[in-house]
Write a protein that binds this DNA or RNA. Sequence first.
DNA 1: CTTGGAATGTCAACAAGGCTGACGTAGTTT
DNA 2: AAACTACGTCAGCCTTGTTGACATTCCAAG
Lengths: 166, 166
Amino acid sequence: MAEDLRDSDTLLFLTDAQLRRAIEAMFFAYRGFTADPDRILSERGYGRAHHRAIHFIQRAPGSTVTNLLAILGVTKQSLNRVLRTLIEDGLVESRVGPHDRRERHLYLTDAGAELEAELSTAQRARMRAAFREAGPEAVAGFRQVLEHMMDPELRRLFAAAREGDR
Amino acid sequence: MAEDLRDSDTLLFLTDAQLRRAIEAMFFAYRGFTADPDRILSERGYGRAHHRAIHFIQRAPGSTVTNLLAILGVTKQSLNRVLRTLIEDGLVESRVGPHDRRERHLYLTDAGAELEAELSTAQRARMRAAFREAGPEAVAGFRQVLEHMMDPELRRLFAAAREGDR
DNA sequence: CTTGGAATGTCAACAAGGCTGACGTAGTTT
DNA sequence: AAACTACGTCAGCCTTGTTGACATTCCAAG
């Protein structure tokens, strides 16, 4: 009881200044997080939007456009512009749905998988390094806070996907 | 010794799939992180770029343009476009440097401070809620990982600023 | 079998916010 | 006096987001 009080009131008492620092940390960290992929992408004339599409197609091969739209939270016009270039460049393949022929199912080609691997490897390396330097206890905390910072519906989707991976 | 080994090799062994999930968590969390300010800003016809400028002027009142440029990592043309609208709208004041009259020192006006408070309050509320739900141990870990995800020079600057706040 | 609606794609136009390059002006330093 | 620095600005370009309108294709319900 006294323990609980200490936990919530003392250990978790955070001043506005501390919260502001955490906000800045999030900003700077996200910059680091995207820096390596951004470099690789710009060499090929792509941007982050391409990375996001490629990432989630790798994550869920055969995903429909509508599905991707919901995950990415952009308009179909915006996504379509990106997908078109990726398809033209032979990185993504769009197959007509086997059951519902209106749907387009998206897959990475070998070239697409290659770029995805390059991007992912760079980003995972940065993430792994940060985890290693921060230590094992920090990693669990990091992930918990991140999940709770998401919008509730997204957190549900994310948690479901996490479970589904097992 | 055996403890150390277990920590680094067992507890910190992360599969690529786990790292990929952490990457996605970072992406979704950042969206949540910016969602509330984005709403407030769009009501006023501003964007994230304005938020960043306002935030760091609040953080370091009297900061010069060059200084802000270094922190934000954008070109002066890009920053200037944002600063101009903020100055025109009476949210930011630009004073000629007292020692070096080439410099412009930036300050929030009362109206600027008001918007900053609104943005910061919303963002801190989300951060505080995430921290509360994740628990006290998670918070320290979260911050450690974030710091190690930054680019090294930025981490130095950030750490220095953190110390300077005390 | 027709028709409504869903899924997809496309055209056009626009805005924010990045970028480069060039240039001007004021002020400081050498 | 010359060189450098800080800042602002004009012009033009790109990516990536937006809205709105419209065509096509196809499933499914009436």
